[in-house]
Simulated assay, not measured.
Amino acid sequence: MAVITAERTNPATRRKKTSSVALKMLMAGTGILLVLFLFAHMAGNLKIFVGEDAFDHYGQWLRDLGAPLLPRTGFLWLQRAGLTVAVLAHIFAAVLLARRARAARPVRYAHRPKVQGSYAARTMRWGGVIILLFVVFHILDLTTGTVNPVGDKEHPFANVVADFAPSRWYVTLFYTLAIVAVGFHLRHGIFSALRTLGQQSPRGERRAQAVALALSVVLVAGYLSVPFAVLTGLVK
């Protein structure tokens, strides 16, 4: 009993617990910020169904946003910088929390009971790697135009149509794999964020699971609708 009391009153233990809570809040906050960006970006992508002029105009509007206070593309660079900081902070918090979780279980048993968890939770690591590789490719493809067949920053519609043309089915396949990974990552991440922010009762957890699933399905469907519309000739 004295040992338990000592642990509870140990300042180092309390600081570590407080630090872990702060890391979870950081991970949840940055995750929410990234989710909001993903949905805003998806809404912009869906303008491709309105037509070439509307989509190209949207691309130009993003480049001119903030003018004359900001130089052309200034808003986009501020956005990229903010997203980079959010991603790095998110990864930092995730890695540190994972290390602490492993340190709290230093003894490895020969036969451990199977951990009950969702498929998304068990694939967060490799899903994160796929997402990271996809982000790098996506930047080189549709941001800088380095690996895009057209690569014209002034005509984003032509870039997208050329990118997901039937002859480039492998790009669509990789895009699909990455977006599905994002969906699994998002489902688990939103659920974890909602739990961190207070949805911890049985009813709250069920609600959080439903919200996380619905948002991830909407996001995956919205993002995949564009490449498959190009692949099938609906958008050309």
Rank of each mutant, 00 (worst) to 15 (best):
V50Y: 13
V150Y: 08
G145H: 15
L23I: 01
F55L: 04
H155M: 03
A178G: 01
F39G: 02
H155N: 15
S225N: 08
A54W: 05
A43T: 04
R72S: 12
V171A: 06
H188Y: 15
A162W: 06
P166W: 09
H57E: 13
V171R: 15
A210W: 14
A22P: 02
A178D: 01
D56A: 05
R187K: 12
P227C: 01
L231G: 01
P106H: 07
P149N: 10
V150K: 09
V218W: 11
V129M: 09
I91R: 04
G183S: 10
A22Q: 11
F157S: 06
A89H: 02
Q209Y: 10
G31L: 07
L36D: 02
I139C: 00
S192W: 08
P149I: 05
R207G: 02
K47M: 15
Q60V: 00
A22K: 12
V147M: 05
M1T: 09
V136Q: 01
A193G: 09
A22L: 15
G183E: 11
Y170N: 03
L46N: 03
A67Q: 15
F137C: 02
V226I: 12
G183C: 04
L194I: 03
F157E: 03
D141S: 14
R99I: 10
F75P: 04
A67W: 06
T5R: 12
S118K: 04
P11Y: 11
F174C: 00
R15W: 09
G59I: 05
K24Y: 09
A94K: 02
M124T: 07
V235F: 07
L219P: 10
Q116P: 00
L213A: 14
I130H: 01
A214P: 13
P202R: 09
I179F: 07
R102D: 11
M27H: 13
N159W: 08
K236M: 04
R203Q: 11
K236V: 12
Q200M: 03
W169Y: 14
M124Q: 14
A110M: 04
P113V: 09
K236A: 15
R112T: 03
R207V: 13
A121F: 05
T146D: 02
A120P: 03
V129H: 07
P166Q: 08
I131C: 00
R195I: 00
V135S: 08
I32R: 01
K153G: 15
V87E: 05
L46E: 11
S20C: 05
Y175W: 08
M1H: 08
G189I: 03
A181H: 08
R187D: 06
V35W: 11
V85S: 06
G127Y: 13
G183W: 08
G44N: 12
V235D: 04
G189M: 06
V87L: 15
L83P: 01
S167P: 00
P68R: 05
V218M: 13
I48Q: 06
V235K: 12
W126D: 00
P156W: 02
A193F: 10
G74F: 07
S225G: 07
I130E: 00
P113R: 13
D152H: 07
F174Y: 15
Q60H: 13
